[in-house]
Design a protein around this nucleic acid. Structure first.
Length: 503
RNA sequence: UCCCCGAUAGCUCAAUUGGUAGAGCGAGCGGCUGUUAACCGCUAGGUUGUAGGUUCGAGUCCUACUCGGGGAGCCA
């Protein structure tokens, strides 16, 4: 069989009534004596293929019957519309070529633990959920590039190997560069500022590395970040740029990946509401919310909801366990056992949240003006809103040396974070940059940094300095937010995590 | 670095008070012409993470370690 007559599955619905060939892998198969159903995936979709005894050679029928999951094959047959097929189109097999029969595929159609799946990441990428997430990721990245390219930005690639830290954080991966200590980049920003004074509007997009000891669902040691930098702008201008940018990403994903979002059970209705203007809070206002009655009340309500759900789940578990002790049909007993496993999982998760709730409430209530907002604080603010929230004007002492002091209040800087709604948390961090030579030098000294390491960066303030600023958006966090995936390790094909690289 | 939880068949999980380690999926064989994580029957599959301890007896209790998950701090 030549492959030049192969149709991709996503084009089959326009060919109903015709004969077609597809090539792919066995996603699932069921046999029923003289009729077999094989669901084939080809990277563009799923197609249920039917082998009916008599319509194809007996020998082939037997071969197909014994095909394991993920066997590769090409099949030819007649296309017909059928509601019972997953894609609405069904292929009645008349011929097939088995390309590579597979036995003992490790990832079965039943559930698996995360450790097992990550050890089999090379195969896990074929699963429906991972497939859908990676398609959304593709759209997000495409939207990012299109947005900037369509709006007069020039792509500037910044180095991955850098001699100095972008921010003073010590948690960088160190590299032996011909005997000299270098680091893997944690931001392209400083270089981008140089480029912005050449092109006006620039962006960089690439992998970023952080050696922080953060073991949470929001952290990876290697992740992708896009960073625009704009000359002649101000903080309101940056906020407007960010919200239009995020809006475009959401709109593109909604337009191009509706099917994927449905597979992922993402909340499409909520995403459709994501339109500018986003909410704007200052850091001080955010602190007032956190330490005020509103947040405490919100958390108390959340706790009540969690507890009532916990009671429901516990009651259900007790009921099912009681049923289990009675005699019953085997299939029913199995169903109850499966349900129990799921409920116990949910119960464990609820208990964790119930345990964390008062801790988060305490952290929020006792929050002191001047600290950076913690993960749980962001989650609270995030959960209280249905659209992304900007938080601006953080205390100077909590932020990086290059952020521009606010002219009206020198205790704060002109920066912002964008918090995704519904509890996901920060997806963007950005600021206006200090553009005055003397002030920047002061700030470098304040942070006990060596000015010699920043001489070229300081130079930018000596020759035609202008007000400028930019931000960074984390791709994996954005994908996690849009897809409803709770952990960002699922939002990059091959995740690198604290102390853990599987493949 | 700290706190909590866990480790039982290839995978997901059971195992009552400390008393003969089970089920489903997956694999193999058989049956079934409309299945949707199909179903039904049969078969194979185990050093209960490692090391020690308590006990007549340990998957279950104790100690240490290893690995994994979640969270805090820190950070994007």
């Amino acid at each position: 069989m030549a492959f030049d007559n192969i149709s991709s599955i996503d084009t089959l619905s326009s060919k109903i009534g015709q004969s077609a060939s597809i090539a792919g892998w066995v996603y699932n198969s069921r046999s029923s004596g003289k009729i077999q159903f094989i669901v084939i995936r080809d990277g563009t979709g799923l197609c249920q293929c039917v082998a009916e005894k008599g319509r194809l050679p007996d020998e082939l029928f037997e071969q197909i019957k014994h095909l394991g999951q993920e066997s590769s094959l090409a099949v030819t047959g007649d296309l017909r519309a059928d509601e019972r097929s997953p894609g609405g189109v069904e292929l009645a097999i008349t011929d097939a070529q088995i390309i590579h029969p597979t036995a003992d595929y490790p990832i079965t159609p039943k559930s698996h633990g995360i450790d097992f799946l990550l050890r089999h990441r090379h195969l896990h990428l074929r699963s429906r959920r991972q497939w859908a997430i990676n398609r959304v990721r593709h759209t997000v990245i495409d939207a990012v590039r299109r947005f900037f390219n369509d709006n007069g930005f020039t792509l500037i690639d910044t180095p991955i190997i850098t001699p100095v830290a972008g921010e003073e954080a010590a948690s960088l991966f160190e590299l032996d560069y011909y005997g000299q200590a270098m680091h893997l980049t944690q931001t392209g920003q400083l270089y981008l500022e140089a480029a912005a004074l050449s092109h006006g509007k620039v962006y960089c997009f690439g992998p970023t590395f952080r050696a922080e000891k953060s073991k949470t669902r929001r952290h990876l040691t290697e992740f992708w970040m896009v960073e625009p930098e704009v000359a002649f702008t101000d903080l309101p201008g940056l906020l407007e740029l960010s919200e239009n940018f995020v809006w475009r990403i959401v709109a593109d994903v909604l337009e191009k990946n509706r099917a994927e979002l449905e597979i992922l059970e993402a909340d499409i209705e909520v995403l459709e509401k994501i339109k500018p203007p986003f909410y704007r809070l200052t850091y001080t206002e955010a602190v007032d919310i956190l330490t005020g009655d509103k947040a405490q009340q919100f958390l108390a309500e959340q706790l009540a909801r969690l507890n009532s759900r916990k009671d429901q789940v516990e009651k259900k578990i007790t009921e099912l366990e009681a049923q289990q002790s009675q005699s019953m049909k085997k299939w029913k007993a199995d169903k109850i056992a499966a349900e129990l496993i799921e409920l116990r999982g949910e119960l464990a998760e609820l208990e964790q949240k119930i345990e964390n709730n008062p801790v988060h409430a305490k952290l929020a209530a006792e929050f002191q003006w001047g600290k950076d907002l913690g993960g749980s604080d962001e989650t609270i603010i995030s959960s209280m809103h249905d659209k992304p929230v900007f938080i601006t004007h953080y205390p100077r002492q909590a932020k990086a040396f290059y952020m521009k002091k606010c002219p009206e209040n020198e205790q704060v800087v002109e920066n912002f974070d964008l918090i995704a709604p519904a509890g996901f948390g920060e997806i963007i961090g950005g600021s206006m940059r200090e553009d005055d030579y003397e002030t920047l030098l002061e700030r470098i000294n304040e942070h006990s940094l060596n000015p010699d390491n920043y001489s070229w960066y300081l130079d930018l303030r000596k020759y035609g300095s202008v007000p400028h600023g930019g931000f960074g958006l984390g791709i994996e966090r954005t994908v996690a937010w849009l897809t409803g995936e709770r952990h960002i390790r699922q939002c990059i094909p091959f995740p690198r995590m604290l102390d853990k690289v599987y493949i």
